[in-house]
Write a protein that binds this DNA or RNA. Structure first.
Lengths: 212, 212
DNA sequence: TGGAACCATTTTGAATGCAAAAATGATCCG
DNA sequence: CGGATCATTTTTGCATTCAAAATGGTTCCA
């Protein structure tokens, strides 16, 4: 198995899979489930530790990282800067096809909102933000964004969304698409910042912290 | 030897040491020089590959990463966003002691400029930028910044600096310190962006690219 | 009976071993 | 003499092994 594949699979298990933050990472079991030996698994663990998804306790194994309140704050702060930058870069670079793709995702997302289908809504939301980052055509930015997104995914999506916030988020997304279509880099960056700042407040207010 | 120490030492060898971009990484020799076996060294290689400092060629070993023109562009774009964010965050957070420290570094830097001591100038310059990032008090941001800085360090510091650019850079640094002292977040972000954009243009114009 | 001390077991971190792939270079043929 | 082919050596990636550290459980003594 390819090295990168082990890293991806492990990342998936940690961000969307069965190992909750703070839990011990069962080296043995994962080796069995991935059908590899400890060496490549441990290599992947070190990579994810460098990314912040895993904490290595010397001589005491590894655990899925817990987000503290400060972590959440820091991650959102950086995410804000990255998404704003992505928006600014995307405006002059985005293709018509990419714009259409985002407009379509947006329409789907509104549908899911109308149907109050939170999970599908989240999926579309995520795809839109990823599409904007992709349109910025900057692999370094995309890599950092993905790394941050992986770390806050649980916090983002576990936090319950109030009806008011949800409605507001939809409105903001209209603004995002609009700014993109007008290629208004400054405006887009501004909306994205506010959008994320609001989300962050919601997450923080929900008292979200996996442990201190 | 601690795992993180192997990573740091290897990073140092790659960014400031004897292995130039594009060169083969001599696993054997490094094992001997670090007095470790291949296992921990390979773990460190994977970590640095995830950071972008090393490229792993399947079944063909690892090489120090070369920066393409696009890499340089991308790294500077993200660096701009990160430094601007750091500046904005630092303004409300920076302590008087930290301000004094930066003012002192600035004075030293001007001294080195007067003496036309490029190496010492660079060292001060780097310490100032790192101090601003530190003042932002955001570990995630600091980590990303360090990772970017490591990757462009060679490009930055190998590019020769024209007398005009050098003079301008000094001026800009006056503005940076001034904005920090006035806690003018917006102004500081603006100056930092311009400062980096100029540097980037210089690096790109110098035709810098380690290979495509 | 409660708690400390000791030993067995498990787990971790790193070295070594092994099979497969790539690089090297020697030979053979046109 | 030049180029292709095949054997040999080296290197790579992973599994296994080994020593040291931590964990857990039992015993022993106050």
């Amino acid at each position: 198995m390819m090295h990168d594949e082990v890293v991806s699979r492990l990342r998936h298990v940690l961000t969307e899979g069965e190992i909750p933050p703070g839990a011990r990472i069962p080296e043995r079991e994962l080796c069995a489930s991935f059908a590899i030996s400890r060496t490549p698994l441990r290599e992947a663990l070190k990579v994810l530790a460098a990314e912040g998804l895993v904490v290595l306790l010397p001589n005491r194994g590894s655990r899925a990282a817990k987000l503290t309140r400060k972590d959440v704050k820091e991650l959102f702060e950086v995410c804000e800067a990255l998404e704003a930058a992505a928006g600014e870069l995307a405006c002059p670079r985005i293709s018509d096809a990419q714009l259409r793709e985002i407009a379509e995702l947006q329409a789907n997302m509104v549908e899911h909102y109308r149907a109050q289908d939170l999970l599908s809504y989240y999926r579309c939301n995520r795809l839109i933000h990823e599409a904007i980052v992709r349109a910025a055509d900057n692999a370094v930015l995309a890599g950092f964004y993905e790394s941050i997104a992986a770390r806050i995914r649980r916090a983002r999506f576990i936090t319950p969304m109030s009806p008011e916030h949800w409605a507001l988020a939809i409105q903001e997304h209209e603004g995002i698409l609009n700014a993109l279509q007008r290629r208004d880099a400054g405006g887009l960056a501004h909306i994205l910042r506010n959008h994320l700042r609001r989300k962050r407040e919601e997450v923080v207010r929900a008292g979200f912290a996996e442990g201190e």
